[in-house]
């Protein structure tokens, strides 16, 4: 195997995740996000979980979250209305770290 260009989704698929289907640990208010011109979350998330959909709205999936906190620090418009760590046992489990 040689190192080929891997997409972020492919990289995330290598990690061990236990996704909390009942409770999202990060929640956005899309009305606030729609009014945010900068949308810094699109650039800073190492897992690229913040995306623009075809209508130009932010779409976000907490399933591949690496729990780093970068989005929380850059969200000036406060579109992130909830940011906590996943409940115990949920989220990413690093095997190397």
């Amino acid at each position: 195997m040689s190192i080929e260009k891997m997409t972020t989704t492919e990289l995330l698929s290598l990690n061990k995740f236990n996704v909390d289907e009942e409770e999202a640990h990060i929640i956005l208010d899309k009305n606030i996000c729609a009014k945010c011109d900068d949308k810094p979350c699109l650039y800073v998330c190492p897992a690229l979980l913040y995306k623009l959909d075809k209508d130009g709205n932010i779409s976000f999936d907490y399933a591949g979250c690496l729990e780093c906190g970068t989005c929380r620090l850059v969200c000036k418009a406060k579109g992130i209305t909830k940011w906590v760590y996943p409940r115990g046992t949920f989220g990413v489990s690093f095997r190397y770290g």
């Binding site: 190192i3 190492p46 970068t70 690093f94």
Partner: peptide
């Protein structure tokens, strides 16, 4: 990773995990 200085150091390797931290 695609810089030649880096690519040749990781050639043949298998990525096993991707992590991030503030």
């Amino acid at each position: 990773k695609l810089r030649p200085e880096v690519a040749k150091l990781i050639r043949g390797g298998q990525t096993a995990e991707y992590s991030a931290h503030v």
